[in-house]
C-alpha cells in the first residue's frame, strides 16, 4: 500500500515537469484568468452599435439556427466547419467585425469558433457575444 502511494505521488510529481514546460511555452498564448480575454468579448449593445459593420455568426447546431437566429446571422459551427467556413468568408471583408454567439453565456461553441477563426482563418476583430443567444432574447423582451 505504501509503495503504491509512493509511486502515485512520484508520477503526480513527474507529470509536473513537462506540464510546467508546456505552460511556460504557452504563457502568452492562453488566457489564464478567464476563458476569453475581456478584450475578445463584446456586449450586445456594442455589437448592435456596429450595425452593418458586423457579421453575426451563429455557432449553435443547425437545428437551432433553423428555428430562430439573429437576423442576418450566418451559420458556422464545428459540425460542418469545412463546408460552412467558405460561405462565411464570402460575406467577410477586412473592415468588418465578427460577432459570434452560441446558446448562452456558458456554452463553449462560440469561443471555439472564435479561436478557430483567429488561428485557422487568420481573421482579426473576432468577438464573442456576452450572454449568447439567451442574452439576445433577453434584450428583445
Amino acid at each position: 500500500m505504501k509503495a503504491m502511494l509512493r509511486q502515485s505521488f512520484l508520477l503526480l510529481a513527474l507529470a509536473c515537469l513537462p506540464a510546467v514546460g508546456q505552460a511556460l511555452y504557452y504563457r502568452d498564448k492562453v488566457s489564464w484568468q478567464s476563458p476569453v480575454a475581456a478584450s475578445d468579448m463584446v456586449t450586445l449593445a456594442q455589437a448592435r452599435a456596429w450595425g452593418g459593420n458586423a457579421i453575426w455568426i451563429d455557432a449553435r447546431p443547425e437545428k437551432e439556427f433553423d428555428q430562430q437566429h439573429v437576423p442576418g446571422a450566418v451559420l458556422l459551427n464545428e459540425d460542418r466547419w469545412n463546408e460552412l467556413l467558405p460561405q462565411m468568408l464570402a460575406t467577410w471583408s477586412p473592415e468588418k467585425r465578427v460577432v459570434i454567439y452560441c446558446s448562452s453565456e456558458s456554452c463553449g461553441a462560440s469561443r471555439e469558433v472564435a479561436r478557430r477563426l483567429r488561428e485557422e482563418a487568420r481573421l482579426q476583430n473576432v468577438f464573442v457575444l456576452e450572454g449568447g443567444w439567451e442574452g439576445w432574447l433577453g434584450r428583445k423582451k
Partner: peptide, 15 residues
C-alpha cells in the same frame, strides 16, 4: 473555475 481548469489542461495530459 477557468483558472483551475486551464492549469489542469496542461497537467492532466502529461499525467
Amino acid at each position: 473555475p477557468w483558472p483551475v481548469g486551464v492549469r489542469l489542461a496542461f497537467y492532466l495530459p502529461w499525467l
